[in-house]
């Protein structure tokens, strides 16, 4: 059963207060080379063989990521998120801007 790995992060430009605090902590420990830290969420989803990329996108758009503030990457097999080593059935994974409607409640995101 393939495991699909999803990484959700805040979009560029959206304030990541946790990331800023972690960067501050790393600087305090002497890791001065750290320019920026972004905090995200990592999910593993077990799906049947031949899983649909389209449906995983829909899961992200409708629940796993908030389209206004978050973006996500979908990967399968080896490394989470990058998808470079083990592309999903629909091809390589890529950062999505998640602009689609959430399928429920049209107004808010219009």
């Amino acid at each position: 059963m393939p495991t699909v790995r999803i990484v959700v992060t805040l979009k560029p430009g959206v304030l990541d207060a946790q990331g800023q605090a972690i960067r501050q902590g790393l600087h305090a420990l002497g890791f001065d080379e750290v320019a920026e830290v972004r905090v995200g969420r990592y999910l593993e989803i077990d799906l049947p063989e031949g899983w649909s990329r389209e449906r995983v996108d829909a899961m992200c758009d409708q629940l796993l990521a908030h389209p206004l503030i978050e973006q996500y990457t979908i990967g399968a097999g080896g490394n989470p998120g990058t998808g470079a080593e083990a592309p999903g059935p629909a091809g390589r994974s890529e950062a999505r801007r998640g602009t689609g409607p959430r399928g429920k409640g049209k107004e808010a995101r219009a």
């Binding site: 805040l10 959206v14 304030l15 207060a17 946790q18 908030h66 206004l68 503030i69 959430r102 429920k104 409640g105 049209k106 107004e107 808010a108 995101r109």
Partner: peptide
């Protein structure tokens, strides 16, 4: 739920 616009971030 999409009944209101926007999103909530962690407090600054």
């Amino acid at each position: 739920s999409g009944l209101l616009p926007g999103a909530m971030l962690r407090n600054r």
